[in-house]
Each structure stands twice: as structure tokens, then as C-alpha cells.
Design a protein around this nucleic acid. Structure first.
Ligand SMILES: Nc1ncnc2c1ncn2[C@@H]1O[C@H](COP(=O)(O)O)[C@@H](O)[C@H]1O
Ligand SMILES: Nc1ncnc2c1ncn2[C@@H]1O[C@H](COP(=O)(O)O)[C@@H](O)[C@H]1O
Ligand SMILES: [Zn+2]
Ligand SMILES: [Zn+2]
Lengths: 223, 223
DNA sequence: TATTCCGATAGTGAC
DNA sequence: GTCACTATCGGAATGAG
């Protein structure tokens, strides 16, 4: 089996990956991205073989029920993500502070899909927007989450969607190459200077979360 | 003073560079290129401050006397180059064999200029066409001697030159980038695969000159 | 189309 | 998608009181 179907193994046998699977329901999985591009990076995976090979830009067309159900799972994933950031001490509000929680999710967590996925099994990214991770190694990684190559889950809602708008976009791969590297915190452009962006993202991350030195080092190590 | 004028030091004080200056005359110098792109690579440098900053494509316009004088110096440089190849045993004919000498010069020594020089002081390259040198490190180096970026000295003769033809050429920089790497011995194209070309040029060099193993190693070392 | 350093870009084969 | 490897391509500095 080729690399395109690596996510199938989680669907087939989630019990085999207890450290990766953070939520298992009858029809969905939420797993940790094996190559996280941020401190926290999860994938929502529908288990149904009926839809797993449908393109994420098409799968919600005329399927409001599916969209609504995925939306529920994404909310759970977002809250798992926040719980973990609370657990490791990066976030410091009370766990039951619903307003702080929602505010953080709205401003610093992104859910959506890549307009040209590489892995064939349908998956939705749920990722914190720090992009502070040793797995973030090049422009393609970064711009796949910070340009229109990334499509927010909200935009896939079939009830709100102008179906014509979806294909009017330019070549998504070209968008990744042509877009400058732009800091998600402050909007500053680094053109194509990836190393500079990485240094800047580390500063922004430290400034926002005030992690301890040992925390910083742990986030820089591969997990 | 910037790098553009590094050749000025030879003009100012040739006695300071006895290992580099292979011929010193009242009006001209012949020096070893400090980053030789072949086993032998010389530069002919007019000493006159009147002309040293004129572009090589312009300097011989309406100046047949200068052209003729440079032509004389180039012939001397070519013969110095051959003498050295005889001395180190790469060439094996007798030193007074005028026919063998002229044949080698005609087929394996090139004299001319870069259509966009980087160094400001007027200079004419006299180079053996082996291109077997550790200083030959990239496509720009190679194609600057093997494409129309390089203009043979013969073509600069004001009595033979159609002055219109000189500027009809495309952007010389683009020529270097767009032209494939083509073996000067056999014409084989290596597209942009510079390392492959280097290996092939070594084979061609060995096949043509039959150097000893220790000679080969010495040509690969920086001098 | 000076050199050198450093880094961005690109293709490969394997998983 | 990942990784590791190789190689090509690309900008910036180059000095000196
Ligand atoms: N074996 C794997 N297990 C879990 N996640 C993976 C695996 N291989 C790749 N990924 C992630 O899956 C995502 C696929 O991205 P994409 O197909 O572009 O939406 C990337 O974020 C990868 O880091
Ligand atoms: N300091 C130097 N002394 C002697 N030759 C040099 C020096 N610096 C560069 N060169 C050579 O000068 C030539 C200039 O090339 P161009 O200006 O393109 O005709 C190249 O072949 C360089 O290798
Ligand atoms: Zn910023
Ligand atoms: Zn050849």
C-alpha cells in the first residue's frame, strides 16, 4: 500500500495506536498528526469507507448532515487541543472558563482542509496557530496552513456556500510557491526567508505563551 | 577598492606578483588567472589607463592598431601556455614543432572576452579548453566560456566586424542560464547536471592527454 | 558575467 | 505525506580607522 493511504491504518485498527488516537467514536477518529506543524496538531478522520476517498472540497456538497456531524467532532477536537495546552501549562485560564476557551479557539485554532491533499483518506486539520515545531521545515509546510491553499471548515458549509466560488481559485500549488512567508501573529512578511520566519515565530511564541526554558526546548525536540 | 578592480594591482605593481605575471611588457601584462577554469588559464591585460575601463566589445572599435598589438600579445600568451603544457609533460611534441604547436592552439586554446565582464579592468582570456579545474564550480563558470557569452578575439577585429551584429544578441546572462551544459570535446549535452559534466570532462581529459595518476591528482588540487 | 558563505529550491528513491 | 541525500540555484557581503 502506498503512502497515500497511511491514514487507513488508524481507521482499520485504532486500538493499535493508543498514543495517537485522542478520540474514538463509532463514525469518527481524532488522531495526532504524526508530523505536527504546531505545538498541537490534530486530524479529524471520518471512518466511513463511503466517503473516505472523496475530495474534501466535494464531500460536503449536498450533505448537510455530514457537515454538521463533522462540525461536532471538530468542536470536540478543538477542546481536546485546549485541554492539552492547559495541562502542559501553556494556557493559564481555568478549564471551565468557557469565554476564555472560546476566545482562544476563535483566535488561535484553525480547522480546515488542504485544497490539494496528499493523503487520500479524508481528514480535517485542527491546529494551533503557533507553527512552532521542528516538523515545520519549509515554505510548503507553512503556506499550506496560512494561505488560501488552506480552506477553513466554515467555508465548506453547504448551506452557505456558493458552489461556483470553489474552483475560481488559481493553481493552489502556485499559491504556496508565490505567496511570501507572512507571520500569522503580526502579518510581517519574510519573503522567502524561511529561517528568518522560524526565528521570528519562536519569538512570537515565547512572547505570547511565556513558556519556561525547558518547555521551549521540549517543543523543539521531536516527539 | 571593490573587487571589480582587483586586476589594477597587477598593473600598478607587476613586480609584486612574480608567480602570477608570466609576461611583462611596457604596454601589456600576461598573468595567470587566479581562479583558473582550466589546467592553464591566462589573462592578457593592457596597462594603459586610457583604455583599461573601456568595455571589451567597444575598445577595438576604430582602433586597428590596438587590436593588432593585442593580437601579438595573445599569440605570445598562447605560446607560453603551450610551453607550460610541454614542460609539465601533458603535451608531448617537440617544442620547435611549429605545425603541432599551431594545430594545438587552433583546436584547443581559446582567446576572447566575456560579453559582460565582472572585473572592470580590460582583460582578454587565453584558456585551454579542457575545463578540468577545481575552480570550475558551476554552470556560470562553464557556460561563460562555451556559449556566445564568450566572444572570440577574432570577432573583435574592427576590419572584419559588422558593428550592427554585436548588440543583436539576447541577454547574455540569460544565455548562460538557459544554455545546457555541453561537452566541449564531444558536444554531448548534460542539461543542467553540472556534476555529471565534471565527471565526463575528467574522462575526456584523461583520454586526450593520458596523464599519470599523480598528474591527475595535482590538477585537482588548488594551486 | 570575481569568490565565498549560506540558504532556498528541486529531484531522487524509499517508506 | 515523511525522510535523507544530492545538487542546483539564489542573494548578500566582500573594505577599512
Ligand atoms: N503516518 C501518518 N500518521 C499521521 N499523520 C500523518 C502521517 N503521515 C502524514 N501525516 C500527516 O497528514 C497530513 C496530511 O496532509 P494533507 O494530505 O496535505 O492534508 C500532514 O499534516 C502530515 O503531517
Ligand atoms: N584577484 C584576481 N587575480 C587574478 N585573476 C582574477 C582575480 N579575481 C578574479 N580573477 C579572474 O578574472 C576573471 C574575470 O572574469 P570576467 O570579468 O568575467 O572576464 C575570472 O576568470 C576570474 O577567475
Ligand atoms: Zn510576527
Ligand atoms: Zn564529451
Amino acid at each position: 500500500m502506498s503512502f497515500k493511504y497511511v491514514l487507513q491504518q488508524y481507521i482499520n485498527n485504532p486500538k493499535k495506536f493508543p498514543d495517537s488516537v485522542v478520540l474514538e467514536e463509532e463514525d469518527f477518529l481524532v488522531i495526532r498528526d504524526a508530523y505536527p506543524k504546531s505545538v498541537r496538531h490534530l486530524l479529524v478522520i471520518p471512518r466511513s469507507s463511503e466517503i473516505t476517498h472523496i475530495h474534501p472540497l466535494d464531500v460536503f456538497d449536498k450533505n448537510q448532515d455530514l457537515y454538521n456531524r463533522v462540525s461536532q467532532i471538530i468542536k470536540k477536537a478543538e477542546n481536546i487541543l485546549v485541554d492539552e495546552l492547559l495541562d502542559i501549562g501553556l494556557l493559564k485560564f481555568e478549564s471551565d472558563d468557557a469565554i476564555a476557551r472560546e476566545s482562544f479557539i476563535n483566535t488561535f485554532v484553525r480547522a480546515g482542509i488542504h485544497s490539494v491533499p496528499s493523503l487520500a483518506n479524508l481528514h480535517i486539520h485542527v491546529i494551533s496557530k503557533d507553527f512552532f515545531s521542528p516538523r515545520l521545515k519549509n515554505k510548503k509546510h507553512y503556506n499550506s496552513f496560512t494561505t488560501s491553499f488552506f480552506v477553513d471548515f466554515d467555508e465548506l458549509d453547504p448551506s452557505k456556500r456558493s458552489s461556483a466560488s470553489e474552483k475560481t481559485q488559481k493553481n493552489p500549488i502556485q499559491i504556496i510557491k508565490d505567496s511570501p512567508l507572512r507571520c500569522t501573529y503580526c502579518g510581517k512578511s519574510f519573503e522567502n526567508k524561511f529561517k528568518h520566519l522560524k526565528l521570528h515565530l519562536e519569538k512570537e511564541f515565547i512572547n505570547k505563551f511565556k513558556p519556561s526554558a525547558s518547555q521551549i526546548q521540549s517543543f523543539k525536540r521531536l516527539s
